[in-house]
Amino acid sequence: MNLTLKIWRQKNAKTKGAIETYPVKDISEDMSFLEMLDVLNEQLINDGKEPVAFDHDCREGICGMCSLYINGQAHGPDREITTCQLHMRSFKDGDTIFIEPWRAGAFPVVKDLVTDRSSFDRIMNAGGFVSVNTSGNTIDANAIPVPKVDADKAFDAATCIGCGACVASCKNASAMLFTSAKVSQLALLPQGKVEAHERVMNMVSQMDEEGFGNCTNTGACEVECPKGISLENIARMNREYLSASVGSE
């Protein structure tokens, strides 16, 4: 199939960007979306032009590195996949496709379609962990039984890949879904309960400091999340936050 691509080009964080138009030909429907961009880049290099910068690594939907806003949707038209898992059979011959970077103040553009998501790392640094040191003497893994329901819910929250689609899709650029996924995972497990209060306060405070917006319960994040992380996690984080705010020591 032949397509027209409208791609955001921006040299670096300091310069202004603009949409540019590129035609691509003979795209197979078995190609992944990123393989289609590989074809474009090979063409640009052969023409002596600069290839389009975009983030990608594992190309199997788990590393969270790829991050494109395609025709106004994070990770493109399909549900519960990342851009690298999107295949060209989702498009048809003659389509025009708009490709933009994540748009959020807390994710500044590095170049073209590449953004800086280190704000997510800083939220994690503020409390996304259980304070346990490495030692050969932790208690046996089966010493504390964990109800299967809790373990499964914790797992579902823990499958977040930190791609940032939730922030990019949210009209407020809120990072509540991302933050709540980690808060939930650890609050659901006995190992994480000990410092649950401190964790939620620190992570939320860091989230605010990074300039992410507030949550107004529109639910766009859940719809666009490639891993189907549930809004329930935000509700759980709000409960944790409230209990940490009013609870007494």
């Binding site: 962990f129 259980v130 490495t134 208690i139 893994a141 964990v146 373990a151 914790a154």
Partner: peptide, 14 residues
């Protein structure tokens, strides 16, 4: 396995 469980890694359970 002990270390990872202590860190909050949600392994599959029965």
């Amino acid at each position: 396995i002990d270390q990872c469980v202590a860190q909050g890694v949600p392994f599959a359970r029965e």
